[in-house]
Each structure stands twice: as structure tokens, then as C-alpha cells.
Design a protein around this nucleic acid. Structure first.
Lengths: 114, 114
DNA sequence: TAGCTTGTTCGGTGTTCATCGAACATCGAA
DNA sequence: TTCGATGTTCGATGAACACCGAACAAGCTA
């Protein structure tokens, strides 16, 4: 469990972000994180194997969309909302609005407890 | 050369649009079309084989981003700006702005003449 | 120390994608 | 009708991706 690389602001690429958001599960994850709260991975319920979920979270992290923090054996993830807003002003909101309206990523849910 | 299918407004999917915009060449094409003018395919200069260009234009069309019209042996393409704005309000502008700022898709150019 | 929890990594598989050249279809012009 | 211009379609190929189960690593906890 090594600390993963997070791209700097100017390393965040538009096509990488778009690519990361082209998968319903990843969109669902972003939606869950949209309130700005940090979430433990245990809170994330998605209909995939844990290795696959790990993969998706890695794609989001590598694209610069989320930031991952480790605490003991647990990992926490948070949306890099300010960074994204700085890098691509006005991009995130319409995507979230559209996803919300369409129900894209509704298969990803929040577990009962924290 | 049969007339291709164009998705209806409510058939346009967010993830398909995001996926279509995750390739620099396609972003470049969208940038060229951003002025709303219809372009003949002969005007589009991209550093790929024509079959590949045909593929990219097909992806954009299937995603509902562009509309293709045929006239004789020539094809014309136009951005479905209003449709996109209706379906995903506010989505296109930030993407174009970010692409413009970053130079994503600058490899796609307009040929000299029409 | 032994076990439990948590997440990563490793093959493996099947799918999709970007790309090319070549062959084909279609239309307009000579 | 023959030729040229314009796109589409057809394999083919190598890369990337989504997905899984299993094995591994690392930190708690009993």
C-alpha cells in the first residue's frame, strides 16, 4: 500500500478527465463525493469486485479528479473540487447536474454507516 | 455511403459524450466546428489516415455531438450545439474553453479553401 | 504472535479502441 | 463510359480497458 501519485494542477489533462468521466461507475463515485466530504472506501458501495473498485478509484486519482489519503489500513478519498475548478473552470458543475438528472452512476451508493 | 444514424435528444448519453471528448483529435474537430459553421470534410486537416478520420467523425456523430449531411459525394458536418445545450446545459462551453486554453486538438486544422 | 481488516497488485479474459492500408461504392466530370 | 474525387467499410494489429478471483502487504487487535 504505497502512497500513490497525484498529478499537479498543470499536469491534469482535459482528455484524461473526460476519459475518466466516461464510465458510469466513476461518474457515480464523483457524484457521491460531490458534497465535498471525505469518504472512507468502506462507505462506497458499487456493484463490482473490490479490485475493480480499486482500479476505478485509481483512474480518478490519476486523472486528478480525486485525492487519496491513507490512515492506517484505511483509505479516504475526496474530490479535488477546487483544483478542478481552477484548472477547468465551470466544467464539473454541468457534468454533475447532467449525471444527477440522468441518474448516471446511481448504481454507486453510500453504505449505511461511516 | 448510406445515411448514418443520429441519436435523438433523449438518446444522447453523458458517458458517450464524455468518451467522445476524451480523444485529442475529436476535441480538435469539435473546436473547429465551434463557430457553428458547417464544414465539408475536405476542409478538415488531421494527422491521421482518412479512414481514421472517418472513424472519429462517426464517433462524434454516434455520440450526438455532430450532425452529418450528405450532398452528392461530399459530406458536411456541423456541431449540434443547441441540442447539446438543451441536453447538457453549460457543458460544452467549459470544455471548449479548456481545450482552447490548453491547445488540445491543435493538430486538427482547417484547410485553406472551402 | 496470530489473526482480522483493508486495500493493492497480479495474471487472465474478453471487449473496445485508435490506427492503418486496401478494397469498395457513389457521384460528377471529361 | 471511363476516370477522378470523396467517403465508407473491411480486416488486421497493438494498446488500453473493465472485470474477476487469488495472492500479497500492511497495519490493527486480541
Amino acid at each position: 500500500m504505497k502512497q500513490a501519485h497525484h498529478p499537479e494542477l498543470d499536469e491534469i489533462s482535459l482528455t484524461a478527465v473526460m476519459g475518466a468521466l466516461s464510465d458510469p461507475i466513476r461518474v457515480g463515485l464523483v457524484r457521491l463525493l460531490a458534497d465535498g466530504r471525505e469518504r472512507g472506501w468502506g462507505e462506497l458501495r458499487a456493484p463490482v469486485a473490490k479490485s475493480t473498485l480499486s482500479h476505478h478509484l485509481r483512474v480518478l486519482r490519476d486523472a486528478g479528479i480525486t485525492r487519496t489519503r491513507q490512515e492506517g489500513t484505511r483509505c479516504f478519498v475526496v474530490l479535488r473540487r477546487d483544483d478542478l475548478e481552477t484548472r477547468f473552470p465551470g466544467l464539473l458543475a454541468p457534468v454533475l447536474a447532467a449525471a444527477d438528472c440522468d441518474g448516471v452512476g446511481r448504481q454507486v451508493e453510500l453504505a449505511a454507516s461511516a
